[in-house]
């Protein structure tokens, strides 16, 4: 199992992500965004969190034109598994690999805290180790996490079971920290091989640090 992690100027979660996947027994490689190819033995490609290109213009807007992104699109088109975390999610929506967009948080504040999430669909490789309606406790850290999609797009997300996670309280009741449409925290594409979420499962690997619920999430990819 080889996890390839992309690094843009401004990415800052690549080493946490590397640590998390290596703790689960995966081999990892960090690939600089100037690369026009991704390693051929890649079984999961992660677009890690951070602030690619300083979030200039819009979060993820400039990163989508980095040389490596052509290879990412090609990899995804051929069924390769792609996971975008936080800024990675923003990059994947900007690149058109995931539907919708991430807007400034409704209350305009940067959020950095643990938040509960409810599993909405688990019939995908990412969340298959979890059950529907399971509650996980995962850190969020973002300014532009307010997920937007139009009504028609939202209908399609529901119909195709593309909604992965919704923000909730610890009982699973709706709790929306940032104004996201229907409290959506993570989605996947129709083909269920490209995943994006604002919360950081790679930061929830140790009980000592508040939660190890990220293990069950990331493990889904390892047993694929």
């Amino acid at each position: 199992m080889k996890v390839t992690i992309l690094q843009f100027p401004g990415t800052n979660c690549e080493y946490d992500t590397q640590h998390a996947f290596e703790a689960l027994g995966a081999k990892t490689e960090i690939v600089w965004h100037k690369s026009e190819t991704i390693p051929s033995d890649t079984s999961l490609l992660v677009v890690a969190g951070g602030f690619s290109y300083g979030d200039y213009l819009r979060s993820g807007a400039i990163a989508k034109f980095s040389p490596v992104m052509k290879a990412v699109a090609e990899y995804a088109k051929n069924g390769g598994k792609v996971l975008g975390i936080c800024n990675g999610f923003q990059v994947l929506t900007e690149a058109g690999l995931l539907p919708g967009a991430l807007k400034r948080n409704e209350h305009l504040h940067f959020l950095s805290k643990h938040h509960h999430l409810k599993v909405v669909n688990n019939d995908n490789v990412f969340l298959k180790k979890l059950n529907k309606n399971d509650i996980v406790n995962i850190p969020i850290a973002h300014h532009d996490g307010n997920y937007y999609i139009n009504e028609q797009g939202l209908k399609e997300l529901y119909e195709n079971k593309q909604i992965l996670l919704k923000y909730s309280d610890k009982t699973g009741a709706d709790k929306n920290p940032n104004g996201s449409v229907d409290s959506i925290a993570g989605i996947c594409n129709k083909e269920k091989n490209v995943f994006g979420l604002m919360p950081h499962p790679e930061r929830a690997m140790e009980l000592l640090l508040g939660s190890d619920d990220g293990i069950k999430m990331l493990e889904g990819f390892l047993s694929a």
């Binding site: 213009l57 819009r58 807007a61 967009a101 807007k103 937007y148 139009n150």
Partner: peptide, 8 residues
Amino acid sequence: DLLANTVI
């Protein structure tokens, strides 16, 4: 292509 995200 770049200056606006026409989704929003």
